[in-house]
């Protein structure tokens, strides 16, 4: 009987974590919502998210915006910052995933927020869909939806960034509220 060839991944016989993460319950609309921004320090991320916060308060009735910056864009949000976002915000926007590690960690942040009951809209550049989708699967949320914006983002001027934020606004709103309510 020959020896068995060993598996070098450590994943043999292991099923992916969960497989079906339940998303956080959605609000009917954003009226009065406290919006959290989780900025990952990638170039133009701060302006992009800040502009989205402004649009959500100005046009969708959100009550307030709280911005937090995670300094290690490659890593998931630190636990204390996550706790603060969960306790102080009704919805969170995070990004921008526009590199290999930060696209994966932005989606991870989104999934962690969802698992603690806070709807999240993750913004990724469309060049990193493969990475974002893969990490969602690994995090037990295959098919997790996020918002994409055309690559590249880092080279945009401030006005172009604000335009981009405007362009993705309907997608952001639609991810954060219950189906059928996005248009309101």
């Amino acid at each position: 009987m020959p020896n068995v060839i060993l598996d070098p991944t450590g994943q043999a016989g292991r099923t992916p974590a969960g497989g079906t993460l339940a998303l956080a319950p959605r609000r009917a609309g954003l009226q009065g919502a406290r919006v959290g921004l989780l900025i990952n320090t990638k170039r133009n991320a701060e302006l992009f998210l800040t502009e989205l916060g402004r649009l959500l308060t100005g046009e969708h009735g959100a009550a307030s915006v709280m911005a937090r910056t995670k300094l290690a864009f490659a890593l998931p949000v630190p636990e204390d910052m996550l706790k603060e976002l969960v306790s102080e915000c009704d919805v969170v926007i995070t990004g921008i995933g526009d590199c290999g590690s930060c696209s994966a960690s932005a989606v991870t942040d989104g999934v962690m927020l969802e698992s603690r009951g806070v709807p999240a809209a993750v913004i990724c550049s469309d060049a990193f869909g493969a990475s974002a989708d893969a990490i969602a699967g690994l995090r037990g949320a295959p098919g997790y939806r996020y918002v994409t914006t055309r690559h590249p983002v880092a080279v945009l001027t401030p006005d172009e960034v604000r335009d981009r934020a405007r362009q993705v606004l309907p997608d952001v709103v639609s991810l954060l509220v219950a189906a059928g309510e996005a248009a309101t």
């Binding site: 070098p8 991944t9 290999g100 696209s103 893969a134």
Partner: peptide, 12 residues
Amino acid sequence: NAFGVRPHVLEQ
């Protein structure tokens, strides 16, 4: 293999 970081997927 151990980290699962493969080209075109998690390796970008």
